[in-house]
Amino acid sequence: MIRHLVLFKLNEGVAKDDQRALAGAEAFAELGSLIPELREWECGWNTTERDIAYDYAINSLVEDRESLQAYLTHPAHQAAAGQWREFATWVIADIEV
């Protein structure tokens, strides 16, 4: 199993209520039901207001590297991630569990 973690930081001048951010969050929220390789899917806005905190997070679980690749290349994931490229940066970690 692989735990896929992603932390998003909104770009300078972009707030959580920006229409792009709201649409991006909605696109990610839908992925759990659209991509069969996802065994677990959680995503949402960070609730803390610390300087070092990221703004949005994804926590997902897939069976193996092939499933992770299927998720990453799925058209719905590509479309959602493409939206976020316009207004945020992110870091990822893939952990074998």
Rank of each mutant, 00 (worst) to 15 (best):
Ile92Pro: 00
Gln83Tyr: 00
Val97Gln: 07
Thr73Pro: 00
Ile92Met: 06
Ala80Asn: 06
Leu61Tyr: 08
His77Tyr: 07
Ala70Cys: 02
Glu86Arg: 09
Thr89Asp: 15
Cys43Glu: 03
Leu34Ser: 07
Glu96Val: 00
Glu26Asp: 13
Trp41Gln: 01
Ala81Gln: 14
Gly13Arg: 09
Leu7Lys: 07
Asp55Glu: 08
Asp94His: 09
Glu63Tyr: 00
Arg3Tyr: 13
Tyr54Phe: 14
Glu86Gln: 14
Lys16Ile: 00
Trp90Ser: 14
Leu68Glu: 05
His77Arg: 09
Gly82Lys: 05
Asn46Ser: 10
Gln83Ile: 14
Arg65Ile: 01
Arg3Met: 11
Thr89Arg: 13
Ala80Pro: 04
Leu31Cys: 07
Glu49Tyr: 04
Glu42Thr: 08
Phe87Ser: 09
Asp64Ile: 02
Ala57Phe: 10
Leu68Arg: 07
Ala70Asn: 11
Ala57Arg: 05
Asn59Arg: 11
Ser33Cys: 00
Ala81Thr: 11
Leu38Tyr: 08
Trp41Asp: 01
Leu72Val: 02
Phe87Cys: 08
Gln83Met: 15
Ala27Phe: 04
Arg50Ile: 03
Ala88Met: 08
Glu66Met: 01
Glu66Lys: 06
Thr73Tyr: 01
Glu49Asn: 10
Glu40Asn: 06
Lys9Leu: 05
Tyr56Glu: 11
Glu37Gln: 14
Phe8Ser: 05
Asn11Ala: 10
Val97Gly: 06
Glu49Cys: 00
Ser60Cys: 15
Met1Phe: 05
Ala80Thr: 03
Glu42Lys: 14
Ile95Leu: 15
Ile95Pro: 01
Glu63Trp: 00
Ala70Glu: 05
Val6Phe: 13
Val97Ser: 09
Lys16Val: 01
Glu37Ile: 01
Asp51Arg: 11
Ala57Gln: 06
Ala15Ser: 14
Lys16Asn: 02
Glu42Met: 09
Ala15Ile: 00
Glu66Ala: 14
Leu38Pro: 03
Ala57Val: 12
Ile52Tyr: 15
Ser60His: 06
His74Arg: 03
Lys16Thr: 02
Ala23Leu: 03
Lys16Tyr: 02
Leu10Ala: 12
His74Leu: 03
His74Tyr: 04
Thr47Leu: 13
Leu72Trp: 01
Arg65Phe: 02
Glu96Leu: 01
Ser33Trp: 00
Leu34Met: 13
Thr47Ile: 09
Tyr71Val: 02
Thr48Asp: 11
Gln19Ile: 02
Cys43Ser: 11
Val6Arg: 11
Thr89Gly: 11
Arg65Thr: 04
Ala15Met: 04
Ile58His: 07
Ala57Gly: 15
Val6Ser: 12
Leu61Phe: 07
Arg20Ala: 11
Ile95Val: 15
Leu72Glu: 09
His77Asn: 14
Val14Cys: 04
Thr73Gln: 09
Ala53Arg: 05
Ala23Ser: 09
Trp90Met: 10
Leu5Phe: 15
Trp84Leu: 10
Asn59Trp: 06
Met1Thr: 13
Trp41Pro: 00
Asn11Leu: 06
Leu10Asn: 12
Ala29Asn: 13
Pro75Gly: 04
Tyr71Trp: 01
Ala57Thr: 12
Glu42Arg: 14
Ile2Phe: 15
Leu31Trp: 05
Asp18Gln: 03
Ala76Glu: 14
Leu10Glu: 13
Leu5Arg: 08
Trp90Tyr: 15
Trp90Leu: 13
Ser60Asp: 05
Glu37Asn: 08
Met1Leu: 12
Ala25Asn: 02
Gly32Ala: 08
Ala29Ser: 15
Trp41Asn: 01
Asp51Asn: 05
Leu68Lys: 04
Asn46Gly: 05
Ala81His: 10
